[in-house]
Amino acid sequence: MLSVSTDSRFVHKMWQEHELSKMVDGGVPFPMLSDGGGRIGSVYGVYEEAAGVDVRGRFIIDPNGTVLAMEVLTPEVGRNVSELIRQIKAFQHVQATGEVTPSGWQPGKHALKPGPELVGKVWQEWKEEMAFD
């Protein structure tokens, strides 16, 4: 986990010590990166020049360095950590098994084996109610 904002490393230190450590027991354990000038955010498509900040953007990167998922929100709405973890587990399941995970998949739920036999038969394997928790 790496967090990034346009704040300096000095501000990150103060935020950790004066606020985050009061929200999260022991404070956040991951590196807090500084993107002054928004050059990194620009490359990732999240830098908002008018405000001089990186908007809320979340990228899942696998051990090979490939971007597997991205989610970008305007700042007012926070993220869903459960959904983040579900997506990481889904990508790990796909890489480990070669199966693919349909809408609503959760660890332990039915995944699909892609191949010619499945064409036109997904309706037998996946039902609408499976889209929901």
């Binding site: 986990m1 967090s3 990034v4 935020w15 900040v53 990481i88």
Partner: peptide, 12 residues
């Protein structure tokens, strides 16, 4: 390693 890269608008 698996990496989650999280941008956010600002500390505080």
């Amino acid at each position: 390693k698996w990496v989650v890269l999280c941008f956010y608008p600002g500390d505080f």
